[in-house]
Amino acid sequence: MTSTFCIEVQNLTKYFGETAAVKQINFQVMDGEIFGFLGPNGAGKTTAINMLTGLARPSSGRILFFGVDYTADIKKAQHLMGVVPDESNLYPELSGLDNLTFCAALHGMRKNERLSRAEELLHEFGLTEAAGKPFAHYSKGMKRKLTIAAGMIHQPKILFLDEPTTGIDVASARQIRQLIKDLNRSGCTVFLTTHYLEEAERLCDRIAFIVKGAIVRIDAVANLMRDFEGRNVIQFGLQGGTRSLASSVEESFPFLSVEFVSEIQLRVYSEETIDIAALIQFFKDRQVEVIEARKIKPSLEDVFLRVTGLETGILKNEKSQGK
């Protein structure tokens, strides 16, 4: 294990019949980093993760963990990884403690070792009191936490986290994000997919964007954000404006680019200083009421928009529809 790359993917491709779900993707995940894997639904994220974890066979390409090629038999690398799927896959009839000790046994841990590790994780995740309750009776947040604990039970070198905070309350999501950070600090490499761009921005060291089976950009979060440095963004809250307003702003202010981010929110972008007063007057002349005007700090959403050519709303809608 001398490679600095924890995961190395070379020309990885997956076909389902004639359809290419993943097309010759290449990326490396550094040992000890949190690597984000972002993209809209159907982009190929899950297929890629399934190939990396042994739940799907690649059509072509190579998968290396710590410099060793495991493409032909990912099973041999499964001791290195913990997998937390987007939906909890623990046993509903077993208690929290039994689920954890069973998962530990699947990794060959001895009885005393698995019991102490399970108790340690239950304590860490705040589930000690619910340890004896059947998993089926857990709340959504508790289920998520226990599923993450089950993925970590054997202290893997790499943890694959698929949508770890989707569908759970704010407090649990915050706790899970903190746990991911702590886990990473303890030396575990994290491979994270999420629909929440703020979460990726907050947690990840580097991010890969995948669209239609192909990776369109990989970079450190700081570098991705640098593209937008020096760019001014003002968001207006408007009442009475129509979508055609965007083109008329661009006609009157040629150095601005404009887009509606929602029915009542218009964003104005420029490399130069934006004259807010002139714009407010412009809207006023057209009987459009300005409710608010605020400077927006560039975010990963802007990066996502630029590299994928999609609207960020697509990601949020997919999750709210439970896709």
Partner: peptide, 15 residues
């Protein structure tokens, strides 16, 4: 159907 079988497939033991 409940996806718990996936957990076995992800365990480092032969099929």
């Amino acid at each position: 159907k409940g996806r718990s079988f996936e957990r076995l497939l992800l365990a480092p033991i032969s099929l």
